[in-house]
Amino acid sequence: MKATITQTLHYDNLPSASGLEMLGDNYYVVGDDSPFLYGLDKNFQIVSREAIFDTTGFENGRIDKAEKVDLEGITLLQHQGKPYLLMMGSGSAPARRKAYLYNICGDDICREGAGKEGARTIDLDNLYTQIEEQVGLEEGSLNIEGVAAGHGKLYLLQRAIATGQNVLVSYRLADFIPYLLGEANTNLPQPELSYFRLPVLKNLQAGFSGAYVYDDKLFFTASLEDTNDAYNDGEVLGSYIGYIPFSWVGKQDTLQIPATVISQADGNPYTGKAESLVVQKREGKGRYRMIVVSDDDQGGSELLELLLSEE
């Protein structure tokens, strides 16, 4: 399997890209220290910026680390025939245990709890506490980095930290959406857990960073970062793309999943931190055109067009 970059774009005015979603010819990006949802057109030009929560603290172009919501995932949900964007915090600190539901169509379902911002705020503390207990995570080790919906389920990717595990947390959307919306007589949805191994370099395991459902696979980005906790950044040693076949979800064994280093056109490894992806299209058997966003940890972002080939 090979993942080769065909084009790279840099954005100085889109800080710390961490989540990417696609709807038609449009792309939506969130950053982990930005209060805005960025809209990109088919040529990847920024055409919109809308506040999804309070913009206080963004005056210098990035929210302070101790205060940021740390949005690390975004996915498209279909509810009652209409599209919504779900954005979720990592859960690695109290301020990061929230989700935001953004209404693309402009009807009333997200108005309650939105205030003057464009998204409905949802407290995820109970849900994240449940994940911590069921996975057996120590305090401060929760780090939800990928969010994707498809085939009737919502998938959350828990990023391995140090010697921890990469975990796929799956929910039935029929249970999860009523919980998100706070509908009457709904309980915490029950997750299904799956455990996976990713590539190791210098005694460090790569960790999940983004997710996207396409065909019969859950595609993911991952990065290998030299850090021992879910809060602090570290040196990036490599970024990867891979996939989990849906037939593997729910297996009790810890499985080694297919993954490959993201490479430049000249064959050298990409040294940025891949954070999220979408699959544009499939080009024949085992070939996928993809878009990846990455965070330079300096307040800027990159967008990569690349080709993934399984051959």
Rank of each mutant, 00 (worst) to 15 (best):
D123R: 07
T186W: 04
R97Y: 07
L173C: 14
R96K: 12
A274H: 09
G73T: 11
G286C: 10
L142D: 12
E50D: 13
D12V: 01
V279A: 07
E50V: 05
S194Y: 08
R289D: 12
I109A: 08
F246H: 11
A148F: 11
K202P: 01
G115K: 10
Y155Q: 06
R172I: 00
F246R: 11
M22C: 02
D266W: 07
N268W: 07
Y212M: 02
H79S: 13
I104R: 08
S294H: 02
D32C: 03
Y11D: 03
P178S: 12
S90F: 00
I74M: 07
V47W: 04
K285A: 10
S170P: 04
G164H: 13
G152R: 12
E275L: 07
N126S: 10
I291T: 08
D64A: 12
G164N: 08
A51N: 09
A265S: 15
S48I: 01
G234H: 11
L308Y: 10
L127V: 05
S301R: 04
N43T: 06
S92Y: 04
D125H: 05
F176R: 01
I109Q: 14
P178N: 12
L71Q: 06
C105K: 13
N232T: 15
R287V: 14
S48V: 01
D295V: 00
T271K: 13
H151K: 15
A174P: 02
V293W: 00
Y214H: 13
Y102P: 00
G150I: 00
E283N: 15
S18V: 00
D125I: 13
P178H: 14
E283R: 15
L137Y: 04
R159I: 05
K98G: 02
T75K: 00
G24C: 01
D64H: 12
T6C: 05
N60H: 14
F176N: 01
P15N: 08
F219S: 01
K251A: 10
L173E: 09
C105M: 10
W248C: 14
F53Q: 02
S301A: 07
Y171Q: 03
E50K: 13
D296K: 11
S276P: 02
S209Y: 10
V29W: 07
K2E: 11
E139P: 14
E138A: 11
K217W: 08
N13Q: 09
L224F: 02
N60I: 05
F196Y: 15
E145H: 14
V278T: 08
H151G: 06
R49G: 05
I241C: 08
K153Y: 14
T4N: 10
E235S: 11
A119Y: 03
Y240H: 03
